[in-house]
Nucleic acid binder design. Structure first.
Lengths: 235, 235
DNA sequence: AGTTTCCTTTAGGGTAGCCTAAATGTCAAG
DNA sequence: CTTGACATTTAGGCTACCCTAAAGGAAACT
């Protein structure tokens, strides 16, 4: 079996991510992979063919890519690494929420099994990363993203942020400056008509926010049962 | 200027290390580099030529390699990364002393300036790594290895281990099992004649140890001024 | 069906870093 | 000063990953 290089890991992770957007089954278009990896389409075709000979993906010309069981296992390992590092960087080193992704991107490829175990233990075998995304277990099982989209929250109901999407870096950065991070207490005060802005109380500040942007945030009505760890201030 | 790849960093680090053994000035033989990087000699020649065109080393055929100022700066950065990670892994994650090197070997290449700063701060801007090796400052200044070789210690004088060489992995492992790690309290009880074994009290255990092996350990007569952090047990 | 448009793939190249085999330089001992 | 032992370099090749330009398929509109 050929070696699983960093590049291979990157491809598998991206394929895994994209296959969860449920467009055409779980078949991922080659072009999408190219965009997300910032690589040319021919490069992707080439690598995907290689991944197939390695038994990591299923692939037919002009018909998208699908992870094999073996490929998915590796992808989940990488995701686990990534999210463990994110949590670690955020809670232990104080790396700001909107920067952990970039750092973890490089660290994820560099984590031995021993270290993974120590890292997970030091963090108390966590189930979610600092964005609220679930961390796959070593066996490959994975929880759900918790909560409902902030725009769907009932008015005047105290809630806690459970998840902030990290898909778009700049938007995430803005949400962080608003204080809209996992663990924050929020109340939806008002919904302007015609898809207008939401008025939200975040902590003790109040602000208006576009519903599309707010859609990147998930909240859970205030059951203070699960106070997730989210110590330390940002940089 | 060409990119500083991981491989380039590895070469510079090894050249830096080897140039400190003071054999022929600071000119490092190509062959030694090959041995230490577990790479063929021709590969080294090729890379060294490339490093020269990058202005990172001085090099003349058949006459060894010397770091340029630019090369040394990069090498010291990598050493700083390496030793910061070692200290972090050991004190914060409980990675055993005889394994931190391997892990840090990969992590050293993956540390942004921001992260380096956070890491150093989280550790209290330390001056020495868990083996007792000095950590270069960001500016490139570096302290000394402290203490004297254990075999040179005066008899019956309480002392503290300040440094354990990590050059030979198996020997280090053995020293760790003896408890001969930085911070440990030792007393040299007896020196057998004709280069025979030393009898040493380590903590409250007593053991006999070959003087060559003991030479890998440095100690400082017991001034309890600097109790270096060395928390957590091993794996 | 014909044609346009938008993927996607093939063809052909490039760089980085490693290798082995063969040639060449250095140095010391006869 | 020659020769043998050993270190080093040159020559030629391989793999991994990326690229651009051009060819090929699929799907949608006329």
């Amino acid at each position: 079996m050929a070696t699983v290089t960093h590049a291979v890991e990157d491809y598998l992770k991206v394929i895994w991510k994209l296959s969860h957007r449920g467009r055409k089954g779980d078949r991922v278009p080659v072009g999408d992979i190219a965009v997300h990896l910032r690589v040319s389409a021919p490069s992707v075709t080439g690598m995907v063919q290689k991944l197939q000979t390695m038994g990591l993906v299923h692939y037919a010309r002009y018909d998208g890519v699908r992870l094999s069981a073996k490929g998915r296992k590796i992808a989940l390992e990488i995701v686990r690494h990534h999210r463990l590092w994110e949590l670690y960087l955020h809670t232990r080193l104080g790396v700001p929420l909107d920067r952990v992704d970039v750092e973890a991107e490089r660290l994820e490829h560099v984590l031995s099994d021993d270290m993974e175990e120590l890292l997970a233990r030091a963090l108390g075998d966590p189930t979610h990363d600092p964005h609220g995304d679930p961390i796959p277990t070593k066996a490959g099982a994975m929880g759900m993203v918790r909560g409902e989209p902030l725009p769907a929250l009932a008015l005047a109901t105290p809630a806690v942020v459970t998840h902030v999407s990290d898909r778009q870096a700049e938007k995430l950065h803005y949400l962080v400056t608003l204080g809209l991070v996992p663990g924050a207490r929020v109340v939806l005060l008002q919904r302007a008509p015609f898809g207008g802005p939401l008025t939200v109380r975040i902590g003790r500040k109040r602000c208006a926010i576009d519903p599309d942007l707010a859609g990147l945030v998930r909240v859970s009505a205030d059951s203070p049962a699960k106070p997730r760890p989210n110590r330390r201030r940002g940089l």
